[in-house]
Simulated assay, not measured.
Amino acid sequence: MIEVMQGDGPLVLGLPHTGTYVPPEIETRLNETGRALADTDWHIERLYDGLVAGVTTVRTRAHRYVIDVNRAPDDETLYPGQNTTGLVPLTDFDGLPIWQDGEEPDAAEVEARRAAYHGPYHAALAAELERVRAQHGFAILYDCHSIRSRIPFLFEGTLPDLNIGTNGGSTCAPGIADAVRDPCEASGYSTVTDGRFKGGWTTRHYGRPGEGLHAIQMELAQSTYLATEAPSWTYDDARAERLRSTLRPIFDTLSDWRP
């Protein structure tokens, strides 16, 4: 369920929301909205594939409706007062229920899923960050995400193309934030740092620059690389290649970065 590809560089990619696997016993309890899996980070693993040599990747195949590995294990919200979804979501990003009536998971089931899916993902991610830090003296976690550009339930208006999260600069060295932000701002894509998305639990949990662990989140508007932000969520090669031409030098810089 957890896929790890080890590289010899300092960069580790987290892929928490690309998986589409839902165990049959869980899938039968989802309603039609839930079974659509609309909140997947569609094709992100393809978008980032091969951008730089030596990168390590950690990916879960489980869908976020099984459990969201980018949420706090105790389900504490990261955005108080704002609409969001939980450790095991009850609604989709449009605020619509995803479970059949009476089939919502209870606390015991949530805990079982946390142990079966959330824990192993973070055990693998933590192990790779420690391995990389031991080799280089530091590690950089780049947490890869995407989302539809218009979701009124979660945010007003249209999301910027490139949304960088550092939790107010606390999760990585300034040079790492600059290495991501500056090329994005020069790219022609609309860009914001610590806007609606300041970094999820993964970025905030692992980002400890004083200990040589740096973390940064990139939330991409899916309009930057998909033909349409609706089924069948088709990958657009031309759009994706333009975006990859922006991401590639960022990864080159991060791979060469030294404290």
Score class of each variant (00 low, 15 high):
207 G>C: 07
228 T>I: 05
156 E>M: 11
185 E>S: 01
11 L>H: 03
125 L>Q: 09
167 N>S: 06
197 F>R: 00
44 I>P: 01
114 R>L: 12
191 T>V: 10
64 R>F: 07
103 E>K: 14
49 D>A: 15
134 A>W: 04
217 Q>Y: 07
47 L>E: 00
30 L>V: 10
243 L>Y: 03
28 T>Y: 12
167 N>Q: 13
155 F>I: 06
246 T>E: 02
182 D>I: 09
102 G>E: 14
12 V>M: 04
40 T>D: 05
224 T>S: 03
189 Y>I: 01
87 L>W: 05
173 A>S: 15
60 T>N: 01
201 W>E: 03
57 T>S: 15
3 E>F: 12
156 E>R: 04
83 N>W: 12
148 R>M: 07
197 F>C: 00
173 A>P: 06
96 L>W: 14
51 L>P: 08
101 D>G: 08
163 N>K: 00
164 I>K: 00
186 A>G: 06
33 T>M: 11
92 D>N: 15
204 R>Y: 02
188 G>M: 08
41 D>H: 00
45 E>C: 10
114 R>M: 12
3 E>Q: 15
178 D>S: 11
236 D>T: 04
151 I>M: 11
230 A>V: 09
244 R>S: 08
71 R>H: 08
30 L>Q: 11
183 P>D: 13
12 V>G: 06
152 P>C: 08
59 R>Y: 09
229 E>V: 01
164 I>Y: 06
120 P>Q: 09
76 E>G: 13
190 S>T: 14
59 R>E: 11
92 D>E: 14
29 R>M: 15
75 D>G: 07
50 G>D: 15
222 Q>I: 01
143 D>K: 05
223 S>R: 03
65 Y>Q: 07
31 N>K: 06
